[in-house]
């Protein structure tokens, strides 16, 4: 049974049964982030500056195995030289209580504008990454992660 509620630790999740998980899933939810709140955060950072596709590889599971620890790998294409490197990457999720997930600040010495972290996802939602290049250009990428109770295979 995949978790849909915002719950504290893996141990506690394991201790709840089917009914309580579902009950939690269906209980009145906390206000959740939306596409709009993510857009508002981006506007705070970069105003109305246009964002291009490409360059960002968002490596996420299609389906979360555990909504409390979803691996998030982001990798931005860049030579990472003094003249041309990735300054920052912001990652948002549009279905969590708060939209921000992580912000990375890279330097040419990073060698590679890539990093991995683990995040909580409260429900099926989009993960959005925005990369700011040293010349000020912005790139963005989006991927959906499904959070499900699954079903029984094989």
């Amino acid at each position: 049974m995949q978790l849909r509620s915002w719950t504290p630790s893996r141990r506690e999740i394991m201790e709840v049964g089917l009914a309580s998980v579902l009950a939690a899933a269906l209980a009145p939810r906390l206000a959740m982030a939306t596409e709009e709140t993510v857009a508002a955060e981006l506007k705070k950072l970069y105003g109305d500056k246009p964002m291009a596709g490409g360059k960002i590889k968002l490596d996420l599971p299609e389906i979360a195995e555990n909504g409390l620890v979803v691996p998030l790998n982001v990798d931005v294409e860049s030579p990472m030289t003094e003249q041309d490197y990735v300054k920052a990457v912001h990652v948002f999720a549009d279905g969590n209580p708060l939209p921000q997930v992580v912000t990375y600040r890279f330097t040419p010495q990073s060698g590679k504008a890539a990093a991995s972290v683990r995040m909580r996802l409260a429900q099926t939602q989009n993960v959005i990454a925005v990369a700011e290049m040293s010349n000020g250009a912005l790139h963005t990428a989006k991927a959906q992660v499904k959070v499900t109770i699954g079903g029984c295979g094989g």
Binding site: Y104, R105, R118, R120, L121
Partner: peptide, 21 residues
């Protein structure tokens, strides 16, 4: 050479991987 600002969506017992030249 590398900084991560973590928000509340980052999982308990945070794991962070990154690179260095």
């Amino acid at each position: 050479f590398f900084e991560a600002n973590w928000f509340t969506a980052v999982s308990a017992n945070p794991y962070q991987a990154f690179f260095y030249k």
